[in-house]
Design a protein around this nucleic acid. Structure first.
Lengths: 339, 339
DNA sequence: CTGAAAGCGCTTACAG
DNA sequence: CTGAAAGCGCTTACAG
């Protein structure tokens, strides 16, 4: 920068002001040109660390998603969100720092704390789906502006409407005529979204006057293996089941395998509906009926919201569009009754 | 930091030295304790931006993967690698900065250049698979230590053995007795890996004395849709084909759908072999035979290698284990001859 | 073993 | 419209 100033025959202050597009103080067009040219010739690029030190701004946004035991559980959804966060950040000139804090002995890992206090972060997008612990609180303690994905207990969040999604799942199956339904869920005290999805299911049943006594529940753990096991269990113990309502697509894909292994045709013998509409869900055999939550829009929404929070505004949280995607794994139950 | 020094009744210099575990200068245990305690009580955490400014070290490692047009082409593999890079970084106290540079009018985007010159990066892991442009060169110009994934023209790389993988694909199919083989590849002038895979295929054929005149090739573009289209084309135009050898799993999954749509049974009527062993490839119907390249180990390997490069060492590049994973989409061709 | 002082590369009141 | 100077929070020769 000194070199630039010298070459343009101005002071370092002037160079700095022109290069940072200081809104105050106008400069003669001529000076500006001299500085800009000099910078270009020298190939000057600002040192962000120095700028960050003094301005308190780093132009770095953090995205954190907890690592739970060994399960990168919602990996695909996280990737989708991450991809779009990266695009949104880069369009706005921000860099993206990624971290996946874990819990060791019930405490957040030191590395995350260290990041929060590093001065590196202008803001944080927190993927905070787990009921049992929060990545948000420490961030708030450090005064870092934050926006949350996956949980609605924070003033600023971006989410799908999980309750509505669950309702759509149940409505679809019930309208098709299914009454004996296997529900593959997630443990109640794990994720916000899972709880809401199931609540939506139950509320629709009661609204439609359908008894949930012939709903049989078996929980999985996000993975397709657990979906396979749960489906196998349900279909074996409750042969009257004609449809499987599954809490996420990964487990639904497992359920699809279970049906195949048991020699059941989908959807003729058994209907299956998932939740998430992963990219791969259109490619299953047969293609999966599921719930879409426009995750491809979440990243942009989260970044935009975060930047407004930084500026002291109070943006309103967003519930993204949720809709039923009917493909080929659902149909009316066979009239013949039991399989 | 000043507060810590004051509280511990030492100079700022001393506090700094103790807190950074300066290898030189020993300190009386008592002083050290005083400083450490003071730091703990105050909840002192270093400002990394300042440290970075002076030391020239940021403790940030960058991972970049190019965004090619609108195709987040190897998205799943990238995620797998990214996940493990993140783990490896965090275990070593490094943070991870993510960027996905694009090309605008043939030039790398300004945002990437800005990142390179920001002083934020201690090193770079570059996912550089595309033959047509390189993210590596600009990094080297800025003198940033770098390690490459997906390309072996750089001194330091981590890769799978794509040539061997292609050879394994072909060998498997040929040993089963297939001679009329549809090859779904990628354009020759796109990716290093794709080219090598195909070369392995061809070399094995000639080594086994099998004519490749009954190999029919049709290229896709990574996506399952393109795999579906290519498979459909091949199976329609060359009904004598008994096996499909596909350059990646995403396209293989599309091929699986094509077979299904055409009423062909896999593997009885048509065998299919993919490449990558994506997490979802075990969950297809039927489960996909494919090539595994231990991608779950690449992240750790890349980070370890990068850190050694930073220290001025010259680590040897790594070619990761590549092996055939036989599942249920391949079998001997039907003896009856044509379908 | 410990401290005073300079300096990393930038920005920003404060003067003019 | 422009410059001299202080300072962001830390580290590191240089002395003692």
């Amino acid at each position: 920068m000194e070199d630039v100033a010298e070459k343009a025959q101005v002071s370092v202050s002037t160079a700095s002001r022109i290069l940072t597009r200081d809104r105050n103080g106008r400069f003669s067009d001529e000076t500006r040109q001299r500085v800009l040219n000099a910078a270009r010739e020298i190939g000057y690029r600002p040192n962000l660390a120095a700028r960050s030190l003094i301005s308190g701004q780093s132009n770095i946004i953090g995205f954190v998603s907890p690592r739970v035991v060994d399960t990168p559980f919602t990996a695909l959804r996280v990737l989708q969100i991450l991809t779009h966060i990266e695009i949104a950040c880069s369009e706005r000139g921000y860099h993206l720092l990624l971290s996946s804090p874990r819990y060791v002995n019930g405490a957040l890992d030191e590395h995350y704390m260290q990041l929060l206090s590093s001065g590196y972060l202008d803001g944080l997008i927190i993927h905070d789906e787990n009921v049992n612990f929060s990545l948000l609180e420490p961030a708030l303690e450090f005064g870092i502006p934050a926006v949350v994905i996956g949980n609605r207990e924070h003033p600023y969040f971006v989410n799908g409407d999980d309750y509505l999604g669950g309702a759509l799942q149940a409505e679809h199956l019930l309208q098709l005529g299914h009454r004996h339904i296997g529900v593959i869920g997630l443990p109640d005290n794990s994720h916000y979204a899972a709880r809401l999805r199931l609540r939506g299911v139950m509320d629709v049943a009661s609204r439609m006057g359908v008894s949930t006594e012939t709903f049989y529940r078996r929980d999985g753990d996000f993975t397709s293996e657990s979906g396979l096991a749960a489906a196998h269990y349900l279909l074996t113990h409750h042969p009257e089941i004609t449809a499987l309502l599954v809490n996420n697509d990964r487990m639904a894909i497992g359920a699809l395998q279970a049906a195949r292994q048991m020699g059941l045709r989908v959807p003729q013998d058994i209907s299956i509906i998932g939740f998430d509409n992963l990219p791969q869900s259109a490619d299953t055999t047969p293609p999966l009926t599921t719930i879409d939550q426009s995750v491809e829009l979440w990243g942009e929404a989260a970044v935009a919201m975060l930047l407004r929070v930084r500026q002291g505004e109070q943006p309103v949280s967003r519930m993204m569009d949720t809709r039923l995607v009917i493909r080929e794994t659902t149909s009316a139950p066979r009239t013949g009754g039991l399989r």
